[in-house]
Each structure stands twice: as C-alpha cells, then as structure tokens.
Nucleic acid binder design. Structure first.
Length: 208
DNA sequence: AATCTATGCAACCGCCGCTTA
DNA sequence: CTAAGCGGCGGTTGCATAGAT
C-alpha cells in the first residue's frame, strides 16, 4: 500500500514528467548491468531522481527491448476485442496474450480506437430505436470517449488460456455463450468484422 | 496563415494485494 | 498479528501534434 505516496512527496529531488534521453540511457544502462530489482532502490542506485514506480513504468512500457511499438495488427486487434469482451478491462491479462505489447498500449488503443467506434455504433443503434440522443450522450466525458468504461462486458475471469506460446488467433478462447443473462459481449451487438470494416479510413492499416 | 478542435500517447494517480520484519 | 514497503493494476490527465475551419 502506498501509505506515503511517492508522487505526493515534497522532495524537490524527485523529478516528474517526460523522461529525457539521458534518463533513459541511465536506466537502460543500469538494468543492463544489474538487472531489474527493487525499483525504489534501483532508482537511487542508478542516480535517477525518479520514483521506483516511474522507473518501472518507463522500463516496462518503453525501454524494454522486447517492447513492440507501432501499428496494431489485425490479428492483435481481433484478439484485443475478443479478450476485452470476455474479461473486461483486465489489460494486464490481455497484454499477456499479445507478446511485446504493454497493458498501457493496449489500454490506450482500446480507448482511442475501438471504444470510440463502439460508442458511435451504440449511438446509431439508439437513434434507430428512436431514443432521444441525450440518453446516448450521457455516458461520454469531455472527450466523448471515456465513459465506455461503463459498458461492462466482462463475462468470465481470466483463466489459464493454455499458455503464452500460442499464436494470436489460435489463442482465442472459446466464445462465451450469449445466454448468460447477466453478461453480454461486443459480439452480441455487432460482428467483429463489421466493426473493423466500420473503422473507415483506419481500416487501410488493418488490411491483411 | 492563424486559430480551433480532435486525437494519440506517455506519464501520473490512487488503490489493492502480497510480502516481510 | 500488524504495520509498512513494494509491485502491480486500471483509470485518468496533460501535452504535443495533426487536421479542420
């Protein structure tokens, strides 16, 4: 527990905000020589004026050599949609099935690309049902995207999906039975393929 | 060309569970 | 048994920039 949250420290020695190239190099160099360890100690030992949490986040999401950056592939996108529909926002679990992708990247991708289209689609369906648009807008924040968190589509907790050696689509868990009255999935609203094709210009990046 | 708006992403925040002394 | 420290997670924010007007 963060009884004394690091970020609230008054210590002027603790830097926050974007990492500099120099800081990146220091962290990478230290981990290359000493390995990952207790992050708070690592930060001090490396001479970084950062919190352990900040170092860990930077390393895991950006500096780690096996981190893959760039466009999400169609296979990855399908997997994200499928796993999110089953597990909800358990990004770390989802990330385990996408080698080289971080939970933060998947989370951002979901919120900025997929969620947006879900809301648009929902609003379209709501309009089709002649429900006043104000109802559909009620769940959007100042960006109009955040509130899809309220779309609770988790159906089952993550379980052992057969190990991490599986390749993308072969790792797809069996689809949930739609007759679970307490749960529903993205697929219940529209087919995944139509979701992708509905992404318009974005779809050009996902063509196989 | 200048201004406004939307978008993407890196990083921060706060909470929780586990471990250890 | 309990308190403190740490790692980890999900949600949120702020900034840079691309695109629209």
């Amino acid at each position: 527990m963060d009884k004394k949250p690091c970020y609230r420290t008054q210590d002027p020695q603790v830097r926050k905000g974007p990492w500099t190239l120099e800081e990146d190099l220091i962290l990478m160099d230290y981990i290359a020589n000493h390995g990952e360890g207790v992050w708070n100690s690592l930060a001090k030992a490396a001479g970084l004026q950062r919190t352990g949490k900040s170092c860990r986040l930077r390393w895991l999401n950006y500096l780690r050599p096996d981190v893959r950056r760039g466009n999400i592939t169609p296979e990855e996108q399908l997997l994200i949609i499928h796993l999110q529909s089953m597990w909800g926002n358990r990004w770390s679990e989802i990330a385990k099935h996408l080698p080289g992708r971080t939970d933060n990247e998947i989370k951002n991708y979901w919120r900025t690309k997929i969620q947006k289209h879900i809301i648009k689609q929902s609003e379209t369906e709501i309009n089709d049902l002649t429900i006043p648009p104000s109802s559909a807008n009620a769940c959007t924040d100042h960006r109009g995207v955040s509130a899809a968190n309220t779309i609770e589509i988790a159906c089952s907790p993550p379980s052992d999906q057969g190990g991490s050696g599986e390749t993308m689509l072969s790792a797809l868990p069996p689809a949930q039975e739609p007759n679970d009255s307490a749960c529903w999935s993205v697929e219940d609203l529209w087919p995944i393929q139509s979701l992708i094709s509905g992404m318009g210009d974005d779809a050009q990046y996902y063509s196989v």
